[in-house]
Design a protein around this nucleic acid. Structure first.
Lengths: 200, 200
DNA sequence: ATATGGTTTGACCAAATGGTCAACAAAAAT
DNA sequence: ATTTTTGTTGACCATTTGGTCAAACCATAT
């Protein structure tokens, strides 16, 4: 219903997303959004009554996109370790182009943003590995812990990129390589922690 | 030199820290800082010429405190795994009471904040484990990778707390316990990844 | 051509906000 | 006691910013 984003409406949403993600709610300016969208501020208000209105739309969209990636688990018939590696690489790639900081920043600013969203069903990741664990296919791990580990390992280096660049002692080139290879290292690491030891 | 923070000056710095950390540079209001400090806005400007001036002072202090914790490595004579566990627990405790999000948010807003700081010497963590590795005491690990892992595992759950609370499928009580035990799990995990396998 | 209905915008407005200043108060120095 | 310095503040100012509105614009139907 009425999500038929018309031509100028779409331009506005793109502009608003870019501006809100870069500057945050408090730093974003309606004039700036209008400029980026290539229209007047009055036109902007014609399509979206006010700033909160527009912001909520952007935040909800970004958040939905994020939750979709997070909670979807592949149905492909493969070994769990292959699925896990692919998921990690996809998730990492997704995070690279999407402003996770935007989400964290705004939730922190206004926790209400979360409360009004309907709670999501349990992430596919969790039940999938709970099942493998019950079936004795993998080690007797703490599944939520692995879930938190995976998220942390994928997310934080992208959030903290500029600081890690300074503190790891790597050169610019080395650091770029490091960040490119990173998701595979995360996969290696988690798979190693999950799989049954081959010691008898 | 002149860091003899006088009585009202200290009240202002405390207030400013609280307000900037909660609302960010763009969301913070000079009037709010004055209110929290219990003085007039004019007095606030008497002590700190302007908002940027005051902000820089707070940011630099917070950043220095953070970098100190990050780059200091214990000199206690103990086994590396004990030292690592203690470091992780201390670091996690530190992060719980300090706004890491503040640092990330403001660096993202204005990368200049980092550029003007003098680069820190390599973190003690890195050279310590490089040495152990050369000496063959631990596995042949990628040290910067472990460094990034440790930071990510300690930091992200605190940044993303409210979302994890919703997505892990744990009850409130379970989640609290989870977060309390968390640093020890991180330590277990990293130690396992670093220590030599006892397979011959 | 003209009326109709949606779209666009420059000009404005009111509130918020960072910052100033003259006047006053309180110490400190003389 | 009196001058001088330091601290404090209410009132004020200029700018920014979210938001409004009447007039103009433009497509389409009549």
């Amino acid at each position: 219903m009425s999500s038929i984003t018309s031509e100028p409406e779409k331009k506005i949403l793109d502009a608003a997303k870019a501006v809100f993600e870069e500057f945050g709610y408090n730093g974003a300016r309606m004039q700036k959004i209008a400029d980026v969208a290539g229209i007047s501020k009055a036109s902007l208000h014609y399509y979206f009554r006010n700033k909160d209105n527009l912001f909520d739309r952007i935040f909800d969209e970004t958040m939905s996109e994020f939750m979709l990636i997070v909670s979807t688990w592949t149905n492909v018939e493969e070994e769990w370790d292959v699925k896990l590696r692919n998921f990690i690489i996809e998730f990492y790639t997704f995070l690279k182009t999407n402003s996770l900081l935007f989400i964290l920043r705004e939730i922190n600013r206004n926790p209400e943003l979360l409360k009004r969203r309907k709670p999501k069903p349990k992430a596919g990741f969790l039940s999938y590995f709970e099942n493998l664990k019950s079936a004795g296919v993998i080690r007797n791990i703490n599944v939520p812990l692995i879930y938190v580990f995976m998220h942390s390992l994928c997310s934080y280096p992208l959030l903290n990129r500029s600081l890690f660049k300074r503190t790891t002692g790597l050169s610019d080139a080395e650091f770029e390589t490091f960040m490119d290879e990173y998701p595979n290292h995360v996969a290696d690491f988690l798979i190693e922690a999950i799989k049954k030891t081959n010691r008898k």
